[in-house]
């Protein structure tokens, strides 16, 4: 039994200096060629936990939209969003197999663990991505398919290949990839991109940096080890904390936008206000912390990370509840 392949990546955070080369298949990854991958490994390649949030926000975007969609077509649209997200996740793991091997959090994924060949992961990712866009286009509409295709390319190419190894702003710009699902759901139901669809995109876009940097604060040693220029590694903890707080301050009014522009009612407005106030309070605690401790002392950061997931689930759930209440009252 051998250990994971040694990383031969260059020094960290050399952003602006061109792409960091990912070494060709080696060691554990090549050993996987002789081993048939289990179906569970293919499933793991789609990052099911991340997919659950993508499915949920896509579904909420669809249910909160003013249009009506046949349940079969609605199910198909959500399935396409899920499959597209799975395909993008597989491509992400194909590209980052060597990086994943160097991080405690990801070293047991199918590729770094040597349970699957790299080519299988690539083919699986391309197949899922292409199939999701084609089915979305044929069954739902080509505008929704186009946005789905953009989101897949955005995540697999713009974020994974281009931004992530180059700049500490990777998650800020790359966060756009995760912001597309509610917009796709909305377009699937209505057939067009409205202001509300853009606002839903903006909420997730602004939510992503504090969510991800809270995680990055307590796993920063992992990122530093593999040369990924995450904000805490490059700019340091104090700067990251200030930026988390800054994004939380911006998120509060942005989360209230659906109510202000008349896209959602008071139920959503009250929920968004309360949820964002708690988000802000937790971010203040993280943002104003001056003493950085070891991983065990990162309780406020872990709490903010956990709450940020709950925040998004409840916020989008409130959006749907608000819409259903409105439909119930006005028919």
């Amino acid at each position: 039994m051998s250990t994971a392949p040694a990383l031969s990546r260059g020094p960290a955070w050399g952003y602006g200096t061109g792409p960091m080369t990912v070494p060709p298949d080696s060691g554990a990854l090549r050993a996987a060629l002789a081993r048939p991958a289990d179906w569970r490994d293919f499933l793991a390649l789609t990052k099911p936990r991340v997919m659950s949030l993508v499915i949920f926000t896509g579904l909420c975007g669809m249910l909160a939209a003013p249009g009506h969609i046949n349940p079969v077509l609605g199910f198909t649209a959500i399935l396409c969003i899920a499959i597209g997200a799975g395909g993008a996740a597989a491509l992400n793991q194909w590209w980052e197999a060597e990086i994943d091997a160097g991080m405690k959090r990801t070293r047991n994924r199918p590729l770094p663990a040597g349970r699957m060949s790299r080519d299988s992961a690539r083919d699986f990712g391309v197949g899922l991505s292409a199939a999701s866009v084609m089915v979305m286009g044929l069954a739902i509409g080509w505008l929704a398919a186009l946005i789905l295709a953009v989101s897949i390319v955005y995540y697999a190419v713009v974020y994974t290949i281009w931004l992530k190894p180059r700049t500490p702003q990777n998650i800020v710009i790359g966060g756009g990839a995760g912001a597309f699902p509610p917009m796709i759901g909305w377009v699937a139901a209505t057939g067009h991109v409205s202001l509300m669809a853009v606002v839903l995109f903006a909420i997730i876009f602004i939510w992503t940096p504090p969510h991800f940097w809270a995680l990055a604060l307590f796993v920063k040693t992992d990122y530093a080890k593999v040369g990924i220029p995450m904000m805490p590694v490059v700019a340091g903890e104090p700067s990251t904390r200030r930026q988390i707080l800054g994004y939380a301050v911006v998120l509060a009014p942005v989360s209230l936008l659906p109510w202000w522009i008349g896209g959602a009612g008071a139920v959503y407005g009250v929920c968004a206000g309360v949820l964002s106030a708690v988000f802000l309070a937790l971010s203040v605690r993280v943002g104003l912390r001056t003493r950085s401790g070891d991983e065990d002392a990162m309780k406020p950061e872990k709490q903010l990370f956990a709450y940020s997931i709950l925040y998004l689930f409840v916020l989008f759930g409130a959006l749907v509840a608000d819409r259903w209440i409105e439909v119930g009252f006005h028919g």
Partner: peptide, 11 residues
């Protein structure tokens, strides 16, 4: 970590 070799039956 690389998974151990498979037996023909497992494969």
């Amino acid at each position: 970590m690389v998974e151990p070799e498979l037996t023909p039956a497992e494969r």
